[in-house]
Design a protein around this nucleic acid. Structure first.
Lengths: 186, 186
DNA sequence: ACCTGAACACCGTTCAAGT
DNA sequence: ACCTGAACACCGTTCAAGT
């Protein structure tokens, strides 16, 4: 006879993880405070204790989660460094397709804004010409590529799992990235 | 004494226009069947008569509206033609910032899918190397650029009017577009 | 400190009813 | 044919109350 397991205490992190699960599996429109509560075995109202701003703040946190990336500064050229940042960003976005719309729509805040500043500084030190413009172009490229790639997989198979990715996506991304970096070089 | 004006009959087009107004001015989250009915001087339930699929179909229609563009095939090189398509797409998306998330998220259907096919054919005839890959890269670029540009204006001034645009947006777009086209050339 | 229950204003959508 | 009113299941959020 299994002992009555004491419930894992609620936390901001567990809430965000559960919210990402729901958004990825069922879509943003079905991410509901009540459904989220169900997934966490808790009444919806308990969530407000851990996420002060309510649902709007929760959505902000989800956007931050998929746009906060970090790269160890090691590579040789600014091109290699730029590639590393773009790959990391793409991977983070593809991991949670359900919240891509939030990531592209909400202006970067907190850790997401900090990551952009860090990326800008690293690329400046690595010798990139106009770091803010370069980072802006890279962010645009990564956002757009991921959006089109996800549209493509959903168009090909409306019930595709997030794991079942577009095989053309990788190569299309690499080609476009090379062209972009060549363009940024001057 | 003003005569009692007979109400303009409801139509799918009027509904879509009113929905775009609300989304642009107040955000997608505040676009509600009831609010939409108010704006049209009609009960919310009347909308279902003109938009069979309900709210989901309405959102699809909004996405189609801002991603359906057309370009008169006249320019000389495939580069000029590609520029024309990218400019037209960007303009259409910037005109309705409130529904960008839908445009990037919903796979192209109906007139939007037709526009992509048309663009692909025109560019093939104009001599572009791999038309589907090229169009995919252009769509990604336009989506990403517009998303970052709108993030940027909202970050600079959270209550900026859609008309008050980012001055850097135009030049950043042109620079990136040139780099992309150079990359597509080979 | 952390969670619940009841309550309130608001959603999307249906269906029968009006004109 | 086109619109309305009432109804239903479901939202986000508050607040007092429980432990």
């Amino acid at each position: 006879m299994p002992a009555k397991r004491p419930p894992i205490p609620l936390s901001r992190e567990r809430i965000i993880d559960a919210a990402l699960d729901i958004a990825d599996a069922q879509g943003l429109r079905r991410l509901t405070m009540r459904r989220l509560g169900d997934a966490l075995q808790v009444e919806a109202m308990a969530i407000y204790h851990h996420v002060p701003g309510g649902k709007e703040a929760l959505l902000d946190a989800l956007a931050q989660h998929v746009t906060t990336v970090n790269v160890e500064t090691a590579p040789s050229s600014w091109q290699d460094l730029a590639r590393a940042w773009c790959h990391a960003s793409r991977t983070a976005l593809l991991a949670h397709p359900g919240v891509l719309a939030l990531a592209m729509t909400k202006p970067p805040r907190g850790s997401a804004a900090a990551a952009i500043r860090e990326q800008t500084e690293q690329l400046r030190e690595a010798g990139l010409g106009d770091p803010p413009a370069g980072v802006r172009a890279m962010r645009a490229y990564v956002f757009g590529s991921v959006a089109v790639e996800l549209q493509h997989t959903e168009w090909a198979d409306p019930k595709a799992q997030p794991a079942a990715r577009d095989p053309d996506g990788d190569t299309a991304f690499e080609q476009g990235l090379s062209a972009l970096l060549k363009g940024l070089a001057g």
